[in-house]
Design a protein around this nucleic acid. Structure first.
Length: 856
RNA sequence: GGGUUGUUAGCUCAGUUGGCUAGAGCACCUCGUUUACACCGAGGGGGUCGGGGGUUCAAAUCCCUCACAACCCACCA
């Protein structure tokens, strides 16, 4: 016997995965006409998978396995991300621990060191992907720093450079003085912080103007004081100059809408080099940009000898003290305002002027919007399309320079003599010579999203002019949280490079929250590790559990209970298989093999299960087409448990149709396989008659059955349930007592009396002798009595009367509906007929129940 | 400030274009060694679908409004 009494996932999973991998089943090697291509959002190469990856893999792998079963050339392309900044932070921390800093090494050496660091830590996440059952084509794994990725990114960048979409601009960037790099707007985390608002007097001949600021240390960079042009208080001052405190500078008072009359004193200091709004104001009024804070977060010489070299915090203190001494500090109040922080170290980001490479996104965004509005990409959930379009319509230029060595070097070289920039791919060199002139490489690297935006292109090896079978991807599955950062950019880049959208459909999953709907975070200590779940309940259980009760785009709690129910299903299926195998073994032993007879239904239970399995198949097909994973899991779950096991297997204990048992078991295994690949394969391998591996099996075809016969069985199940329920209630009145069944003019029960007796576990079953006695079973279209002695029925009387009243209330409701002429006239005919039928049914039921009372 | 989504059983969630008595898993209660399975079997309890209004023969579902929650974007001198 190959089947133990329960399924232990740990004993099978690793071997099964190894067997799949060795067989080459993950490659897109079907002979089918259609294809299915999907890429994995690359997890961090040197990290561990988190619960979100668990969800991603459950979704993507279920799809892949489904389409593989449907005989499509299915290609699930795995990836690994160099995770530029993420990895950099981890590495820098490691360096710090050893007592070093990045500034001790040249960039080339740092790059090599991080490469080794990643290489050493790599492989962990790949093992974890295997544990989750990802059936991805490992030989096609793409690393974000692979040769072909860099080549493609350079080609795009060159094209953009030639198209005039790349420019070098001095703009304010979000700068982390700890990590010493700039961030894109999208990477900035805003937090509400407590701060102070100080009022400072700027004096002029014969008066003063009070400005409010949260950042007095930037005062040295002030280029003007702005007031609102509508503000009558300051009308006469516009055009005059004021003295900038603690300096010997005079700055103009200008009129600009930016100054809010309602806020503070209505006058605001303008510091173009250290504030985004002020930068814009400065541009409008042609103000100088005076940088007073350095990249190390310390004050520069421009702040004056007393302040240069201080940190911003020290400087703020001193400025306030000095202002106070001079009597220029006029007020201080506490406020809460939102402040930009580094999402890694929490340092307050400093807006600093930097020369950076920018992509002009106007054309890219416009093209993307046009294709989106043309419905070339279908979104799940649907509303994300409009969210994306709105974002693209307001998109600003994209800063693609990052000041960290770990990434793809920007292929631009600068000649100091001529101040000219040229494109060149020889980024392994620090300096190059072209036409007798010396050029130095820009030290910066690309924003990771710039290279990641090529993901569908590089993973499918798309090349210009060469037909590519797998591009555009069938679907892009990723987190809703990176809709802007990634999905938007892939669409823009796909269109720019290939002229086509990079994928036909987008499925976005939400955040996986903890059991109480809280965001998981290390600091809260509520992080659930998917691999722990796999160890505890098995990979299949985790996959089904995380898909259950989850819909596109929504942040939803992770419930371990759902994983438990997944585990239970695996065991249930295991035992169903164990039972069927035992029947097959019996027959083999008796040398009574009837395999070659072929699969035929021989009784109504068999027709019924064929109908239910066929319905299940068609619901699953629909669910996969529309990405309704939770519904699919629930459908296959209830088909296996509530239908196949509870009714079909039970009835087969009387009628053994072995060929049908075998073929229907194969069918449920195959239908469950996309979600629970391991247990279905383990069973497939243990069954005596199956060939090959289930991963390569074929999705079931439409099943034939007799619908009338199937419907009869359905009726029988209702009758049986009613008998059981009645018996249970009686048993509460008369402990543990069993009763016999008597049937009257009822061909269904008559023809299937043994089955009815078996399923109801009643003590006997006989035809009535013409005069019915006992308690009539309330199920419709049946004449069946429980042979219960009168005194017990008397005890049951009150319950029965209550039941009749309840049915009567329902009947009243239905009658009221029919009395409404508008309903009869306007509701669909089918529905009205249904109501009529129901009324008849209720009336019949009441009469049956009343019979029970009369008999007494 | 702008936007998106949500509020359904004790908990986590379904409910696809309005239409049977609103469903599932887990939890709960009662009974149960019956040719697989106690990770089991049978039966059962539990919801005026966030509040209020409207449209309709009919609303958990559509519209308005209020409350609460989450997320995203922008911004707060």
């Amino acid at each position: 016997m190959k089947f133990a009494s329960s399924y232990e996932p740990g004993e099978y999973e690793a071997d099964i995965y190894a067997a799949w991998e060795a067989s080459g089943a993950f490659a897109p090697n079907s002979q089918g006409e259609k294809r299915f291509s999907i890429v994995m959002p690359p997890p961090n190469a040197n990290g561990n998978l988190h619960i979100g990856h668990g969800l991603t893999i459950a979704l993507e792998d279920s799809l892949t396995r489904y389409y593989r079963l449907r005989d499509r050339k299915s290609w699930f392309i795995p990836g690994a991300d160099h995770a530029g900044f993420e990895t950099w932070v981890v590495y820098e921390r490691a360096l710090e621990k050893e007592g070093h800093t990045r500034f001790e090494y040249p960039r080339e050496e740092l790059y090599a060191r991080v490469w080794n660091f990643v290489e050493e830590n790599r492989g962990n996440m790949e093992l974890q992907l295997r544990a989750l059952g990802a059936s991805c084509s490992w030989q096609d794994l793409t690393f974000t720093l692979d040769e072909n990725v860099i080549r493609r990114v350079y080609a795009t960048f060159e094209k953009m450079w030639k198209d005039g979409m790349v420019y070098r601009g001095e703009k304010l960037v979000n700068y982390c003085t700890k990590h010493q790099t700039a961030f894109a707007d999208i990477e900035v985390e805003h937090q509400d912080d407590k701060g102070h608002l100080w009022d400072i007097a700027y004096t002029y001949d014969g008066g003063e103007i009070i400005v409010s600021t949260t950042r007095p240390e930037t005062l040295f960079g002030d280029a003007a004081v702005a007031v609102n042009p509508e503000d009558s208080r300051y009308k006469d001052l516009i055009g005059k100059t004021v003295h900038l405190p603690l300096t010997d500078r005079e700055i103009p008072i200008i009129a600009d809408e930016h100054a809010d009359m309602e806020y503070g004193t209505g006058a605001v200091k303008i510091t173009p080099a250290h504030d985004y709004d002020d930068f814009e104001v400065g541009n409008r009024h042609d103000l100088p940009r005076i940088t007073v804070i350095g990249f190390d977060g310390k004050m520069l010489d421009a702040a004056g000898p007393d302040y240069a070299g201080l940190t911003t915090a020290e400087c703020r203190k001193k400025v306030l003290k000095d202002l106070k001494e001079q009597g220029l500090l006029r007020g201080e109040k506490q406020i809460t305002h939102s402040v930009a922080h580094c999402y890694k170290c929490g340092t307050v980001l400093e807006p600093l002027l930097m020369k950076q490479w920018f992509i002009n996104t106007e054309k890219l965004a416009k093209t993307a919007v046009a294709h989106l509005e043309n419905n070339e990409i279908k979104f799940y959930p649907e509303n994300k399309k409009n969210v994306l379009i709105n974002y693209l319509k307001g998109l600003k230029d994209w800063n693609i320079s990052r000041q960290i060595p770990w990434g793809i070097a920007i292929p631009m070289f600068h000649c100091e003599e001529t101040d000219e920039w040229i494109f060149d791919t020889r980024t392994d060199l620090h300096e190059i010579e072209v036409a007798g002139k010396k050029y130095l490489r820009d030290e910066d690297t690309f924003d990771t999203w710039f290279s990641s935006s090529h993901w569908p292109i590089v993973c499918t090896d798309w090349e210009e002019g060469i037909p590519n079978e797998f591009y555009p991807l069938n679907v892009m599955e990723t987190g809703a949280d990176i809709l802007f950062a990634w999905v938007a950019r892939m669409i823009m880049m796909g269109l720019y490079v290939t002229g086509e959208v990079p994928f036909r459909e987008v499925y976005l999953h939400g955040l996986v929250l903890d059991a109480h709907g809280q965001k998981m975070s290390k600091s809260k200590g509520n992080v659930i590790n998917p691999i722990d779940m796999v160890g505890k309940y098995g990979s299949d259980a985790f996959r089904m559990g995380i898909l259950r009760g989850r819909s596109a785009g929504m942040n939803q709690a992770f419930s371990e209970n759902s994983v438990v129910s997944g585990r239970n299903l695996c065991n249930k299926l295991w035992n169903i298989s164990r039972f069927i195998q035992s029947i097959v073994d019996e027959e083999t032993k008796d040398d009574n093999i009837i395999d070659n007879i072929g699969v035929k239904t021989e009784n109504m239970g068999e027709d019924w299960i064929c109908r239910e399995l066929d319905r299940c198949r068609s619901v699953l097909e629909q669910d996969f087409a529309e990405y309704r994973f939770a519904d699919a899991v629930e459908t296959i779950y209830s088909t296996i448990w509530d239908k196949y096991a509870d009714w079909f297997i039970e009835s087969q204990k009387l009628y053994k149709n072995t060929p049908l048992l075998k073929s229907t078991l194969e069918m449920i295994l195959i239908m469950l396989h996309p979600f629970a690949p391991f247990v279905t394969e383990a069973i497939w391998q243990n069954l005596s008659w199956t060939d090959g591996m289930i991963i390569n099996a074929e999705w079931p075809l439409r099943l034939e059955y007799d619908p009338i016969s199937a419907e009869n069985f359905e009726r029988l199940t209702i009758t049986v349930s009613e008998v059981r329920s009645t018996m249970q209630r009686l048993s509460e009145l008369n402990k543990g007592k069993k009763y016999g069944l008597l049937y009257g003019d009822d061909s269904l029960v008559n023809d299937n009396s043994l089955l009815v007796q078996y399923l109801t576990r009643c003590s006997s079953i006989n035809p009535t002798d013409g005069t019915p006695r006992g308690l009539r079973i309330a199920a419709p279209n049946t004449e069946l009595y429980l042979d219960v002695p009168e005194e017990i029925i008397n005890k049951y009387r009150a319950q029965l009367e209550e039941h009749i009243l309840a049915v009567g209330r329902e009947l009243d409701g239905l009658n009221a509906r029919m009395m409404n002429p508008n309903y009869v006239e306007k509701a669909p005919a089918g529905l009205v007929k249904e109501t009529r039928d129901q009324i008849k049914e209720k009336e019949d039921l009441i009469s049956r129940l009343k019979t029970q009372l009369k008999i007494i």
